[in-house]
């Protein structure tokens, strides 16, 4: 019973108090408010770090469960080996430059991760051929705008390198920027109202389930 009541009321109260405090301290230059602000910001980073650790533990737990069930066992074992190796290397040799930890990051993690991202270049090329079509006037405007940007940032010489970039920069700086600004303002107002709803307890989806 206590759990059921406190499970929602206490977190909502904590959310309300810290939301209000962090909002109000914005308007104060008093040393107490500044200290309180700094303290809460430090605590926030620490608690957030714990949430990362919890997430990492969940990855480990799920993998162990899946391995015991036999699903994708060899692949998951490789993944787990990679996962365990990083803290082990850091523990033994530290995290300075020229340590095995750094070596793993630079020769295993970074190359693979950037190559995964590089695959997108191929999918963009494929999508350009198969999906990027002037089916309507707005679609044609989108297409022309994209092609203009690509041409203006290519070094082909002549007008393409001299005059076109100026036209493209103007489009980027004015009509394109205006639409982006409208989106930004829309998101800003949306975030503002959502934040208010969270603090006063109307928006409660972050509480998760109903207990």
């Amino acid at each position: 019973m206590v759990g059921v009541l406190m499970g929602r009321r206490l977190p909502l109260a904590v959310c309300f108090v810290f939301g209000l405090v962090m909002f109000l301290q914005y308007f104060s230059e008093h040393p107490v408010a500044i200290n309180l602000n700094q303290t809460i910001l430090d605590y926030w980073q620490i608690v957030f770090a714990f949430t990362l650790i919890v997430g990492i533990f969940t990855y480990f737990k799920n993998n162990v469960t899946q391995i015991s069930r036999g699903s994708d066992r060899p692949f998951r074992l490789v993944g787990l080996a990679g996962f365990v190796s990083m803290p082990l290397l850091a523990l033994i040799w530290g995290i300075k430059a020229d340590t095995p930890f750094m070596w793993m990051f630079e020769n295993v993690q970074a190359p693979m991760q950037s190559t995964v991202f590089a695959l997108l270049a191929f999918f963009v090329a494929s999508a350009s051929f198969r999906g990027f079509r002037a089916r309507s006037l707005p679609a044609a405007v989108l297409l022309l705008s994209a092609l203009l940007m690509l041409l203006s940032r290519s070094n082909i010489g002549g007008f393409f390198s001299e005059g076109l970039p100026e036209i493209a920069n103007w489009i980027r700086d004015y009509p394109s920027m205006a639409a982006r600004r409208a989106i930004l303002i829309g998101i800003g107002l949306g975030s503002l109202t959502t934040s208010l709803r969270v603090i006063i307890g109307i928006e409660r989806t972050w509480l998760g389930g109903d207990k």
Binding site: G7, R8, L10, P11, L12, A13, V14, C15, F16, V17, F18, G19, L20, V21, M22, F23, L24, Y26, I40, L41, Y43, W44, V47, F48, F50, T51, S191, L192, T194, S195, L196, V198, I199, W206, L207, G208
Partner: peptide, 17 residues
């Protein structure tokens, strides 16, 4: 939910201004 409330509340508080 208590630490989550702390982080969500603090985030919402600084997000308004």
């Amino acid at each position: 939910r208590i630490p989550i409330g702390f982080m969500i509340g603090s985030g919402a508080g600084v997000a308004i201004p």
